[in-house]
Design a protein around this nucleic acid. Structure first.
Lengths: 252, 252
DNA sequence: ATCGCGCATTTCGTATGCAACTTGCCTACA
DNA sequence: TGTAGGCAAGTTGCATACGAAATGCGCGAT
């Protein structure tokens, strides 16, 4: 195993060696994307040696990537045993939805207080991209852009803590969202966009209460649909009534 | 540099090699404690080789510890350069206090809804330990127990996301809290405990509104004091009026 | 036939080696 | 005197090496 002379995967030509310090990050990004898109299913074993062969790197940078992913909760690493893609814990869905609704409402409210032309412009841009993705029925883009939309609202709060929480939460939920959309095959229902529009308008005019209401409605719409969709999945042995009940509860 | 045959620093005799897999964790714990207690000051350079010598380990486990700390934001690692203890960013204090007040209120509210005898008992136990630490003027314990108190409330929410946010936030703030207490030398004012009591009572009888009010008051008391204390510190070149203003604002 | 035990294999945790990148200093030159 | 360039030292990022823990399998005993 001299050297992967072929270097088959691309990178074209002799690829001036990737800049020192990017190896671990590229593995991290790649694995994270695959995990969030469910290309790597929950429970998949991540063998360090195998990964290092796949990425044409040694175990050190691969290990670094796994450590970072495990800090984010996307990977679990039992002591002295193989890392694995962390399970989608459906029993944690009620808590997840509580946290999501809270952050949607909170970020919408704070964003409307800190609004800026630039921020609103970004929102509108993402939203129009999201509409185009809906028309193309481009599920991966829909998931990604929905994430970007809420991340952008979180950015407008200018609160690094809330921004962080929101992004981590969105990442965690992306897998469930992906599963939900997959359950519909091509027939994607799109009730969320109206709430997005309402949210943008409320933020634009600085109406915190309306923004919060829209955020709440957006969250609830998503929750109810996911609950309904997962109800038809065999994997969901969860008491959905609890989820549904929490979905309509005011936690604050 | 064959091997530190002397093994000078202790660990006594041949110390049945520490169980495989604990090296990185012990370095992580040790560094984290030192950072949070300000034994390692913000900006301190963390040289991997030096640390590996200090802990009698190789660079690999040290590196893993640094990666995990950097994922938590306690350490910053510029590419190809030495890691360093992350700076205390006083300009982020307003955002921090916003987040703190939010979590105090939220966790108190949810805890009062999910209350259990066991949970309340834990709170009371921590609180009495906190009082004893106050009497001893044991600053390190006060900081630690105050953290434990709010972490315990977060645990009572049964929401892993909120628990995580709270714990990360408490860790981040521990350094500021420590700095604040240090600014008083031995004369530690203790206005917080009354709110703690109110919070426990409210949680005990399931009064969500009262619990939230107590949480808010606890946060505000702390905020106002820290603002006041830091105002007397040369390092605080921050516009404290903004912090003070936010301290009394309803963010939801 | 089932269960328990020991050995071989696999994979991880840690140690060590090496090359690249950064940095500071020293020198040469305008 | 001030600035640019090069050399040397130091530290990281990645590769490789090695021992230990865990897993799986085969064999024997009950």
């Amino acid at each position: 195993m001299k050297r992967p002379a072929s270097k088959g995967t691309g990178k074209g030509a002799k690829t001036r060696r990737r800049p020192r310090g990017t190896g671990a990050s590229s593995v991290y990004e790649s694995l994270k994307t695959k995990i969030l898109n469910l290309e790597l299913k929950p429970g998949t074993l991540l063998d360090e040696t195998e990964l290092s062969r796949h990425y044409h790197l040694s175990r050190s940078p691969v290990r670094e990537a796994l450590i970072r992913l495990s800090a984010e909760g996307l990977v679990e690493t039992p002591r002295n045993r193989s890392s694995m893609v962390s399970q989608l814990d459906f029993s944690a869905l009620p808590a997840y939805f509580d946290a999501m609704q809270l952050l949607y409402r909170l970020s919408a409210r704070l964003a409307s207080k800190n609004r800026s032309q630039a921020g609103v412009a970004i929102l509108k841009e993402i939203e129009s991209a999201l509409e185009r993705a809906h028309e193309r029925v481009d599920v991966l883009s829909i998931v990604q852009l929905n994430r970007d939309f809420h991340a952008a609202i979180a950015d407008m709060t200018r609160n690094p803590f809330i921004m962080n929480w929101m992004k981590t939460l969105l990442d965690q939920g992306q897998r469930v969202f992906r599963l939900y959309l997959a359950s519909f095959g091509d027939r994607v229902p799109l009730p969320k966009l109206s709430q997005h529009h309402a949210m943008i308008r409320a933020i634009e005019r600085g109406d915190a209460d309306a923004a919060e209401r829209a955020g709440k409605a957006d969250a609830q719409g998503l929750i109810e649909e996911v609950v309904h969709a997962l109800g038809n999945l065999p994997s969901a042995d969860l008491d959905l009534s609890e989820v549904a009940e929490r979905a309509v509860r005011r936690i604050i």
